[in-house]
């Protein structure tokens, strides 16, 4: 029997790793991959609480998170392809079109 706190600590570790990737990397693709990692760590927390409290709602919210993530990835990669077609860069600090 694995205690609940282990799952939460695993989720927290993955979240911190993901946030380091989002904030530190320059490549937009890696930023998006790290974002996926963060969303997954949140899912671990939701399912862990769902299991330990005997309630299905956590799993249902995790299913919604997965659905919204799929939509987000499709739109984000579409934006990325359009961006590269116009600007030919993948580095986050060079994309300053909206900076006025």
């Amino acid at each position: 029997m694995v205690p609940l706190s282990w799952y939460l600590i695993l989720g927290a570790v993955l979240f911190v790793v993901g946030i380091a990737g989002v904030l530190l990397r320059r490549n937009v693709l890696i930023v998006l991959l790290s974002l996926e990692l963060m969303l997954n760590s949140v899912n671990i927390n939701l399912v862990a609480f769902s299991h330990f409290f005997g309630d299905f709602r956590g799993q249902i919210i995790a299913i919604f998170v997965i659905a919204i993530t799929a939509a987000e990835v499709a739109v984000a990669l579409g934006v990325l392809v359009a961006l590269v077609r116009n600007k030919a860069t993948l580095e986050v600090d060079e994309v300053t079109i909206m900076k006025g």
């Binding site: 904030l23 530190l24 320059r26 693709l29 860069t89 993948l90």
Partner: peptide, 12 residues
Amino acid sequence: LDVQAEARTRFL
């Protein structure tokens, strides 16, 4: 996208 040429430096 052929990302090999991009991202010469990894971190900000």
